[in-house]
Amino acid sequence: MTRWLPRVYLGLVYLLLYVPIGVLVVFSFNDSRSGYTWGGLSLRWYQSLFNNNAMVEAMWNSLWLALSAATVSTIIGALTALALHRYRFRGKKVLNGMLFVVMMSPEIVLAISLLALFLLVGIQLGYVSLLLAHVTFCLPFVVITVMARLSGFDESLPEAARDLGASDFTMTRTVLIPVIMPALLAGWLLGFTLSLDDVVVSTFVSGPSYEILPLRIYSMVRVGLKPEVNALGTLLLVFSLVMLMLSQWILTRSKR
């Protein structure tokens, strides 16, 4: 009794976590038009998904936005982390704390304030406004990931490189960046996923010229659950699993 009880409990927890995902995957191959009855195996929803031009465009838009937002925030974030780690300056603590404020503040607050800012400055709502918004909420995550790596960084490594004849720039290129590379990748991936599935901030700062996937899905399901959405969900699931495995592979390889 006491031996199988924990296992049953654990099984229930995982069942609760994975049943919805499993249902989604299974029903994406359902031939029936209704979302609740099984009509045999079929790939028709995948087909109709790829025939839906607006959907495919939103997918590419989302991917491009996530790629660019993750890259920009990794560059800015890594430099910020380096500055916070390396130099002592006035207001360093305040700056550090402000990162957490962005991270902890409700998304809706960030969304409203960004919208107000864009309207005030006169930025057209579209790709640029989305990019700026996404970089804003990805940045703290990148900074914190890179800082964690830097805090365990042996300070004598850059000194050893300088001692052996490397200029500051060469040292950064050949020693510093390779050593913190796992953290840069982790930060980038984090930014990528955050950007890819953001709804709240994007709802406020996107315009008609640039439709992205989460918003597209959201508007689709408002009028009723279409089986196409299941297919799309399955694709996204596979994509994130591949990304996850890729990142794990890179991380374990760099440790060796």
């Binding site: 042996d154 004598s156 000194e159 050893a160 300088r162 001692d163 004849g165």
Partner: peptide, 20 residues
Amino acid sequence: TSPEHRPLNTVFQHYALFPH
């Protein structure tokens, strides 16, 4: 003179080998 231009080298306490 900056360290990279000094004709002397250092052996560090914790070796400071480049891990990668």
